[in-house]
Simulated assay, not measured.
Amino acid sequence: MAQDLVHGFADARFAAAREAFEANFAEGKEIGASVCATVDGETVFDLWGGRADEARIRPWQRDTIVNVFSTTKTMTALTALLLADRGDLDVAAPVARYWPEFAASGKERITVAQLLSHSSGLSGWREPFSQDDATDWDKATRLLAAQAPLWPPGTASGYHTYTHGFLIGEVVRRITGRSLGTVFRQEIAEPLGADFRIGLPESEDHRVAELVQPGPGPEAGAAEMAEIPSITFRDTQPDGSRAWRMDVAQTRTRAWRGAEIPSVNGHGNARSIAEIHAVLANGGVAKGKRILSEAGSRRVLEPQIEGPDLVMGGREVRFGLGFALAPCPLFPLTPPNPNTIVWGGGGGSLVVVDLDARTSFAYAMNRMGPALLGDHRSFRVLEAMWRALA
């Protein structure tokens, strides 16, 4: 039955990766999902299957896309690294160099690198901030520019769950005169022919899979999924202010899909995510196009902050420029090579890039699990890939 649900291809060398993906459906752990990997810039498996809607009527097709939540942050980081590589952005410079209003309330020394590594002290809004406000770019950035940090910048990370994209996006807008979603699309996604958007046109709504929150029972794989440590985000920010939490139902609205929220509302599939991150895996080149210099692509490995995260329940994390550096206590797998970066989205989307083995791996699905950096569904496929490469 799983074979009937899963489509796409896998090189013979990666047959076990396909079998692992098929097992997710056979064991009732998925509704719909996609997985893809590249090695030396070549796609070695590209698989998808299941259903794209909660009612399980609409098939997950080759071009189905889904909101991947915080996997979007990796696209935001890539956009900033692109500007840095061109000399338009100095990540070590104060944010206020590009966004003068940001210097208010003692933030004049916060650097762009601290935004990228979640250590700026701006993990949330002090002022009341609602789900509807998330689609109001001017309000979101104006409030962040005016407020004081929630803890001393540079002393610890505190995951910038929603603020990350607004902060970096406003820096990008001040430099280029274009929104981050526009720069990303024009300078990265379109040159690579990658089907990933931050700000989705209404014409693409018919392709979007519905996110489904996990439910009880064996079909949801509850027992096995519970073995993955979930990320417990604080209900309050480190200063005691209330954190904004979104309703998954919001992701089905046109307002959410059409807005640019470069922390959490990117839409794509595993193919687009893996093929975009092949840029980092292959010294700045993907699909024959140079997007970054080799030195620029390796900047993701520059350590920025390490230790207990103030927002993610005190979990230990090592952040570079926009990605977690593995091995990392937050990510329970040990990669085969040291120069590996990882990040994911709430519910289970995941991207892993091994700069030593020149590989990129991505997973995107619509049934949400409890973890931030992947779970058994993606891990079993990733581990099968690593065994094949060994």
Score class of each variant (00 low, 15 high):
218 P>F: 07
261 I>D: 09
268 G>P: 02
221 G>D: 01
233 F>D: 11
207 R>P: 11
259 A>V: 02
281 A>F: 09
194 A>R: 03
223 A>Q: 08
256 W>A: 04
243 A>T: 06
222 A>R: 12
280 L>H: 07
287 K>D: 09
281 A>E: 15
277 H>S: 11
230 S>L: 09
230 S>C: 02
282 N>M: 01
194 A>Y: 04
224 E>P: 02
240 G>R: 15
239 D>P: 10
192 L>F: 03
230 S>N: 08
242 R>T: 14
238 P>H: 10
271 R>T: 05
188 I>R: 02
270 A>S: 05
188 I>Q: 05
209 A>K: 02
191 P>L: 01
273 I>S: 06
195 D>F: 07
199 G>V: 12
185 R>K: 13
182 T>W: 00
244 W>P: 09
234 R>K: 13
200 L>Y: 08
192 L>Q: 03
200 L>E: 07
253 T>S: 15
263 S>R: 10
242 R>C: 11
265 N>A: 15
277 H>R: 09
214 P>H: 07
276 I>Q: 11
286 A>G: 14
212 V>D: 14
280 L>A: 13
228 I>H: 07
276 I>V: 14
221 G>T: 01
209 A>Y: 02
259 A>E: 12
201 P>R: 09
284 G>V: 12
278 A>L: 00
233 F>Q: 05
280 L>P: 11
182 T>A: 07
188 I>S: 04
290 R>N: 03
213 Q>S: 13
177 G>I: 01
247 D>I: 01
236 T>N: 12
197 R>K: 14
276 I>H: 11
289 K>Q: 14
283 G>L: 10
280 L>S: 01
263 S>C: 05
187 E>L: 10
286 A>N: 10
204 E>N: 06
232 T>N: 14
221 G>H: 01
217 G>W: 03
272 S>D: 05
198 I>S: 12
266 G>L: 10
235 D>N: 06
179 S>P: 09
180 L>C: 06
227 E>P: 01
246 M>W: 06
227 E>W: 00
290 R>M: 04
203 S>Y: 01
237 Q>I: 01
204 E>R: 06
232 T>A: 10
239 D>A: 15
255 A>Q: 12
179 S>A: 15
255 A>N: 07
255 A>I: 02
